[in-house]
Every structure is written in C-alpha cells, then in structure tokens.
Simulated assay, not measured.
Amino acid sequence: MRQIHQLIDKPADHPDTTSAQPLEPPAAVIVQTPEASAQVAQSTPRGGRPPSATVEELAEIARIAAVETGKLTRAIVQKAVKAKGLTISGQRLTEVMDIVRPEIEGHADSGPDSG
C-alpha cells in the first residue's frame, strides 16, 4: 500500500529526486468562461425524465385554464397541468407563461370593456 506522499503530485518548485523520469512541462490548462459553461448548460439537458408533453401542448392547457379561471398565474397553470396527469418543470412553466401571457393580455385589452 502506498503512502499519501507517494500518491500526490510534487509541486513544480520541488522536483522529485527519487523519480527516474525526466521532468515535463505542465499540460496546457483550459479555462472555461462562465458564458461558455452557460451555453453548454442550455444546449444539453441535465438529465431527468423526458418531457411528457410539448411546450405547445402545455400552452394549450394554460390557455384553457386561463379562460376557465379568468386569470393566468403560474399556480393555475401548474394545477391544470397536474390535473391532466402531466408534470412541468419550472423552466418549462416559464416558457409556457411567456407564450400564453401576451395572448391572454392581448385578448383582455381587446375585450368588450375596452373602448
């Protein structure tokens, strides 16, 4: 069994005199910027289950729920989706709200009370 000092790398300023291997310069270090890691995170799913419904199907459920209740909130949409036996993540809920909210607000502005 090896001792811990035999398993760790020696610092560059303290060369290992017991090793018969020649010293090599350190490999190039790749530094990833926050922007690059954010792009990677957005382009690849982090795991979990595959979606049970498309965003458009979820948007239709949200539209129906908004008409039935007379208002559009995240809680109402979540409850309507759950009532259909589906699930929705927070990110997908935000996507659905961004799709449906302008439509519902547009109908409210052009309703019979405006004018």
Results as ranks from 00 to 15, higher is better:
21 Q>N: 10
48 G>I: 07
24 E>G: 01
64 I>P: 04
47 G>D: 02
23 L>Q: 13
64 I>Y: 02
50 P>G: 09
58 L>I: 00
40 V>R: 10
36 A>Y: 12
29 V>W: 05
23 L>G: 00
24 E>Y: 09
64 I>M: 10
59 A>T: 03
28 A>F: 08
56 E>G: 00
56 E>A: 04
55 V>F: 01
59 A>S: 12
31 V>L: 05
15 P>G: 03
63 R>N: 08
22 P>V: 07
51 P>F: 03
53 A>C: 06
49 R>Y: 04
64 I>D: 13
48 G>W: 14
47 G>R: 09
66 A>C: 07
56 E>P: 00
34 P>D: 02
57 E>R: 06
61 I>G: 06
21 Q>E: 14
19 S>A: 14
30 I>F: 04
35 E>I: 07
44 T>Y: 12
45 P>R: 13
49 R>T: 15
64 I>G: 08
40 V>H: 14
43 S>M: 14
44 T>K: 15
65 A>M: 04
42 Q>A: 15
15 P>N: 11
57 E>C: 11
60 E>K: 03
52 S>K: 08
39 Q>A: 15
62 A>I: 07
38 A>M: 10
29 V>S: 06
27 A>S: 15
46 R>V: 02
26 P>I: 09
26 P>T: 09
54 T>S: 06
27 A>I: 10
34 P>C: 00
36 A>N: 09
44 T>D: 10
30 I>E: 02
37 S>D: 11
19 S>N: 06
56 E>I: 00
29 V>F: 05
44 T>G: 06
61 I>P: 01
65 A>S: 15
32 Q>N: 14
63 R>C: 04
66 A>S: 10
49 R>F: 03
25 P>H: 07
45 P>Y: 05
61 I>A: 09
39 Q>N: 11
23 L>R: 04
18 T>M: 04
48 G>R: 13
21 Q>V: 03
38 A>I: 02
31 V>K: 15
62 A>C: 04
31 V>H: 11
18 T>K: 14
30 I>Q: 05
64 I>S: 13
50 P>I: 08
39 Q>G: 13
60 E>L: 10
21 Q>F: 07
31 V>M: 09
55 V>C: 03
59 A>P: 04
41 A>N: 15
39 Q>P: 02
42 Q>Y: 12
63 R>G: 00
50 P>Q: 07
31 V>A: 14
22 P>A: 05
24 E>H: 09
50 P>L: 04
24 E>K: 05
23 L>P: 04
65 A>K: 11
49 R>Q: 11
23 L>D: 11
41 A>T: 12
61 I>Y: 08
50 P>C: 07
47 G>T: 03
50 P>N: 09
20 A>N: 10
18 T>H: 07
24 E>Q: 12
38 A>D: 11
42 Q>P: 01
54 T>D: 08
18 T>A: 11
48 G>D: 08
49 R>C: 01
17 T>I: 11
41 A>R: 15
44 T>Q: 14
16 D>S: 08
59 A>K: 02
65 A>I: 02
29 V>I: 07
50 P>D: 06
53 A>N: 03
46 R>H: 08
17 T>E: 14
60 E>P: 01
20 A>Q: 14
46 R>L: 10
61 I>K: 00
28 A>C: 01
20 A>G: 12
62 A>G: 08
59 A>E: 00
